[in-house]
């Protein structure tokens, strides 16, 4: 029987705003399958986002929703999680939202290791505002504000998360749709701050400026560059040049923030939760 996505979709919210060929919808479907696998209760799950095409996702999912300010999802979500540690808190957003304006909140959420899952849809561009370059736009690629090519070096989101202290970091792509839900399931099950970066596409504002002839070409590119971590172990540095690793890149057991804070409460003479 076909999977029933409808049960997690907020009534009356479809059709969505995304352009034909946009990868954000593929990520949303993966996320819904993951929620179903885990049997997440809608009213015990908070989905928090900032602003951007990616950040519109929570509007379509019938859970507790916070659609907040551009870049601030991690901060808002931290407030939710501290007040309601029993809730499953999932953040979603784009590369611009999470690593430019929200970069500071992002690294500090990683550092605290608070038990939330952050799904970042990295389409290498500010899609919603018409295609300005983001911190992940590849060097010398074109965007509406880099007509001569992007002079900035770019972030590797997964490495940034690991460096900042996230205790679960995974990467998938919009092409490898069947892997998305599996990564998200493991991320949510992990106790601590987990990051799932999904390499995504924006045909409308990035693809057309960078000579991708079609969405299929953009998807094929994701397929070509992705190398599963296991396969990479057997490859030489030359073979790995220009590739990106996918799968679970990092996992570590470390004290989680809400539990650590309980100890502070107990030391201060407050009641255990």
């Amino acid at each position: 029987m076909a999977f029933d996505y409808e049960k997690y979709i907020r009534p009356g919210k479809l059709p969505h705003i995304w352009c034909p060929g946009c990868g954000h919808g593929i990520v949303m479907k993966g996320m819904i399958r993951a929620m179903d696998t885990l049997g997440l209760e809608k009213n015990n799950t908070a989905i928090v986002s900032g602003i951007g095409c990616a950040s519109r996702l929570p509007g379509y999912i019938d859970c507790c929703t916070l659609h907040t300010a551009h870049g601030r999802a991690a901060a808002f979500a931290t407030g939710v999680k501290l007040a309601k540690p029993e809730m499953t808190v999932i953040l979603v957003g784009g590369d611009g939202d999470g690593t430019a304006i929200g970069g500071n909140h992002f690294i500090h959420a990683c550092r605290r290791n608070i038990d939330m899952t952050y799904i970042i849809m990295n389409n290498y561009i500010y899609g919603m505002t018409g295609g300005q370059f983001s911190p992940t736009t590849p060097h010398m690629h074109k965007a509406s504000t880099t007509p001569y090519g992007n002079p900035d070096p770019s972030f590797d989101i997964a490495k940034l998360a690991i460096g900042a202290g996230a205790t679960f970091v995974a990467r998938g792509t919009a092409f490898h749709a069947n892997q998305i839900d599996k990564l998200i399931v493991e991320a949510i099950q992990h106790k601590g701050f987990s990051v799932v970066e999904i390499l995504d596409d924006c045909p409308t504002t990035y693809g057309r400026r960078n000579k991708f002839k079609s969405v299929i070409e953009m998807m094929n590119r994701l397929k070509e560059v992705a190398v599963p971590v296991k396969a990479a172990e057997k490859m030489t540095p030359e073979q790995l040049a220009g590739k990106v690793l996918t799968g679970i890149l990092y996992k570590e057991d470390k004290p989680e923030y809400c539990s650590e804070y309980q100890k502070v409460i107990e030391r201060a003479g407050g009641a255990a939760r």
Partner: peptide, 28 residues
């Protein structure tokens, strides 16, 4: 970037380098 003023940075990102000027898109 932010709508509805993005024409200003887009124009200046194109024109300033021609005049030895600089356009920076900040992180926020």
């Amino acid at each position: 970037p932010i709508t509805p003023q993005s024409d200003i940075p887009e124009y200046l990102s194109r024109e300033l380098p021609k005049l030895n000027g600089e356009f920076i898109q900040a992180e926020s």
